[in-house]
Nucleic acid binder design. Structure first.
Lengths: 227, 227
DNA sequence: TCATTTCTGTTGTTTTAACAACATTTTAAA
DNA sequence: TTTAAAATGTTGTTAAAACAACAGAAATGA
């Protein structure tokens, strides 16, 4: 496990924990490591999850199959990233997605109950571990909630204004930069790129906003009822 | 606080904890209670959150204001329900919504750090509390992730099939009941009700599915490329 | 610098959804 | 049972988005 300490140190789960302490914790958590060949299943849809997984090397894909067998890729998991943590918290519900090795990879599993239960051998950083774990889940929550607010709007215009408004408020300024290019923004909002560009142009023509590359300015007086 | 024990017992946070134990825990957690008049702010957007809130009586609204000052109601919080728990986990990020009393109400606040740090006076159920707390957050995560998968589809047809496929898989059967009426389903997927009804009729005509009231049956052979 | 690629904006056409209005069915109440 | 109300399905019209195709701008790198 020693060779993966750099990965672990950078991971959100062990953030703020020194290498020495990580070593101790891995023992206290009885961390298990397992290797997978490309295309091997790491988790199968329907499994009941009691361990949290972390990719140490290689990459894994989180995939889902619908009723008709159509596969879709939910996300890619890179080294240092947790997966299945939500289902580990709710072990009574079977997981509804699969995790597959996208390349040969090494995965570390941590028993959820051991993460949760503070060990008797006063392991100083256990609270920190729980806190990091909570932050990881809560962080995802935040991201999802925010995205949902934009996506639940029906028109591109509304989605855009919802997103830009949020970015503006976050930066505390009516002028701000966004971290997406047009295609990424379109993907994020689940709309067509050119339709998005088109809508942006209209909004500028109507003087609801200005933009230049990734810098946007919202006008204080959006025309009455911009929705 | 005694009068609210029935509410607390039913809450997700104290699920599986006896009244006596709840009493002890509230002390150990130094729970604070505060009353609010209708329309009073309980949390203001921009606040840094260090406590988790729970409604004991009355109801509260979670609201948000966009750049132009347009308010929207995110959700209603009923007795026994936690709020602000996500932001309590990530206290470095200011909350981006406000919580307002929708009627006169009584709110309990629990210091997040006290929830997290197992008390010295071996409080037997503290691990259970942390587990419940985690479950609450992870549960919301699950709900959001699932909804997002449907909503990220572009057409009503795709959204519907994504939702119905998920329901079918959940129930392990091609025939299943859904918990929404048409309007609720339309709201859930953020689409127009009549357009949804229309699309359902088309899907039935194309023999991709059958439905009767809230009972749906997906056909094993959806025509090639139903997307 | 020039060439190439990527990104962005624009336009026209086709497809889809929103919306409104109404018919039919179902449910609940009197 | 009859009536009223609510829920659901249907249709036509209007509005909006998807899509495709392309032009110009910006970024990249040889």
């Amino acid at each position: 496990m020693e060779e993966f300490l750099p990965v672990l140190k950078k991971s959100s789960l062990f953030s703020g924990v020194s290498s020495d302490e990580i070593r101790g914790m891995l023992k206290c958590l009885s961390a298990r490591m397992k290797c997978y060949k490309k295309d091997e299943f790491i988790i199968r849809s329907g499994d009941y999850i009691h361990s949290v997984g972390m990719v140490l090397s290689g990459t894994a894909l989180i995939i889902q199959e619908d009723f008709w067998g159509k596969r879709s890729i939910i996300s890619e998991v890179m080294p240092g990233t947790l997966f299945a943590e939500t289902y580990a918290c709710i072990s009574s519900v079977p997981i509804e997605m699969s995790v597959v090795a996208d390349s040969d990879c090494e995965i570390m599993f941590l028993d959820f109950n051991k993460i949760l239960t503070v060990c008797t051998s006063a392991c100083g950083f256990h609270t920190r571990l729980i806190q990091n774990f909570l932050s990881a889940i809560a962080g995802r929550n935040l991201v999802l909630t925010k995205k949902m607010q934009h996506m639940s709007k029906k028109t591109i215009r509304e989605k855009l204004l919802s997103y830009l408004s949020a970015e503006s408020l976050k930066s505390n300024s009516s002028t701000f930069d966004i971290p997406f290019n047009r295609q990424q923004l379109a993907d994020y909002l689940s709309v067509d790129r050119s339709a998005l560009s088109n809508e942006l142009s209209k909004l500028q023509a109507e003087e609801i906003l200005n933009f230049n590359k990734n810098r946007f300015t919202l006008k204080e007086q959006g025309p009455e009822g911009y929705l």
